[in-house]
Computed example of a mutant assay.
Amino acid sequence: MATNLDKMDTKSRDERRKARRAMYRKSEENNEETEPKKVKMSIRLIPIWLRLIIVVILISASLLAGLVVGYGILGNGEINDALKKSTWTHIVDLIEAD
């Protein structure tokens, strides 16, 4: 499925803004009663790639907080031990033991 990018309208945000302002000025000069067509544009304050990074960071932080609370507070263990590799290899060994 091929797309023809040459025929697509690829204007930048500034070009669209300038065209909209020019259309509004023309309507004022002609004393037209009708207003130019309003186009709703969404401007992202936070880019999508940054949103994804923030979500991954928040998920990781909540996972670590859950490990610390579950192992250290609810499990009556040491809070520092919750993040050690030896603790989790021991738990995996207990689960996989026959």
Rank of each mutant, 00 (worst) to 15 (best):
T3D: 14
T3G: 14
T3V: 11
T3C: 10
N4W: 11
N4E: 13
N4K: 05
N4Q: 07
L5H: 08
L5T: 08
D6E: 11
D6L: 07
K7M: 12
K7C: 13
M8D: 14
D9L: 00
T10H: 10
S12R: 00
S12W: 01
R13G: 06
R13P: 05
D14T: 03
E15H: 00
R16Q: 14
R17C: 07
K18R: 10
K18P: 02
K18L: 14
K18C: 05
A19V: 04
R20C: 00
R20Q: 07
R21M: 13
Y24R: 12
Y24I: 09
R25E: 15
S27A: 14
S27G: 08
S27K: 13
N31M: 07
E32V: 07
E35D: 13
K38C: 04
K40A: 10
K40Y: 01
K40H: 08
M41F: 09
I43R: 15
R44I: 00
R44H: 11
L45W: 02
I46C: 06
I46H: 05
P47Q: 00
L50S: 10
L50P: 05
R51Y: 01
I54R: 10
V55D: 15
V55T: 13
V55N: 14
V56Q: 06
I57S: 04
I57P: 02
I57H: 03
L58F: 04
L58I: 10
L58T: 13
I59E: 04
I59Q: 05
S60V: 08
S60N: 08
A61W: 02
S62M: 12
L63R: 06
L63F: 10
L63P: 03
L64R: 09
L64Y: 10
A65V: 10
G66D: 01
L67T: 04
L67A: 03
G70L: 04
G70I: 02
I73M: 01
I73W: 02
L74P: 01
N76L: 05
N76Q: 06
N76C: 04
N76G: 07
G77K: 15
E78S: 15
I79P: 03
N80I: 11
N80G: 12
A82V: 00
L83P: 01
K84Y: 01
K84T: 01
K84C: 01
K85G: 06
K85H: 09
S86Y: 00
T87F: 03
T87S: 02
T89V: 07
T89A: 04
V92E: 13
V92C: 12
D93R: 08
I95A: 04
E96D: 08
A97K: 15
A97D: 12
D98M: 09
